[in-house]
Design a binder for these strands. Structure first.
Lengths: 144, 144
DNA sequence: ATTATTCCTACCTTTATAGTAGGATATACT
DNA sequence: AGTATATCCTACTATAAAGGTAGGAATAAT
């Protein structure tokens, strides 16, 4: 029930990239320092987001990472799924055949409902939304 | 992000006990057969619920398990937490000091919101609610 | 060339999950 | 008293996932 550090670090890194949108590529070293994480581990996280088409990279000196699309066009759920895996509290939510007890299970409706509310939140927000919420709360003072 | 079998089996077992409320104690063997689970494993699950005060037991021949309270007085969240652990997607939801990046984290609001909607669902329902939903859907034909 | 970066592969450690095994203890019924 | 049926208790095992680390190759700007 706890999010993996993969997902936590990944989303935080995406927020950095969102704030940096349309500027120079942001190297992992910078992100890693700001977030207090090792570059090596962040590499393993960001490659997931790259394969998912959410970020793109440029190699070599002055290289780094950028968002592949404007932050208001990137939904949280599309970042979440590659990092944490699909939102599936129980398999039967998407595949009735996955559980032999599906027919007479009295709990499946509950799990489905919980699953749905999680997805609703993750679908309803973009990276841009999170940036704006944060600005409204007066964070981000270390960035200009 | 996936529920443990502990939680899934545990809740299903509780549904059996809810349907059996104020009848004779229900032995694990019966539940295990209905659910297609080993008695041995179910023992490990039910002891968690017993320690949490949700079920009580009677030993010996004709013994078994019963709900400790009427099913309409048992909230799902009180069953969920001992089985799956507290609903805490990220520690900072309950303990700001748990993350050194709390002050400038742009994602914490999102995690808090997801956490809240999960808890809301689990708090809003009792075992009795699930039984009634199920009856309304015409399941439970094997029980009378 | 040198430096800074991404990219790739392999390895390691720790923790949690999902069990199984064997037997001790308690209770009802005959 | 004895047997069958339960819960209860302790210990063990196997597998997978999480959370990294290490070393170096490939690429690009200066």
């Amino acid at each position: 029930m706890r999010l993996s550090t993969r997902t936590r670090y990944g989303l935080r890194a995406l927020m950095e990239l969102a704030c940096n949108y349309e500027k120079k590529p942001l190297p992992l070293k910078t992100i890693a320092q700001r977030q207090g994480v090792s570059v090596k581990y962040l590499e393993r996280v960001i490659v997931i987001l790259k394969n998912a088409g959410i970020v793109k990279s440029s190699r070599g000196s002055l290289g780094g990472y950028m968002l592949a699309k404007p932050p208001d066009q990137i939904k949280i759920i599309d970042c979440f799924r590659p990092l944490e895996g699909p939102v599936v509290l129980v398999d039967c939510v998407y595949d009735e055949g996955s559980c032999s007890r599906f027919a007479d299970c009295m709990v499946k409706g509950l799990w489905k409902q919980v699953n749905d509310v999680i997805e609703d939140v993750l679908k309803s927000k973009t990276l841009q939304d999170l940036v704006e919420n944060t600005k409204r709360e007066g964070i981000l003072d270390y960035r200009i």
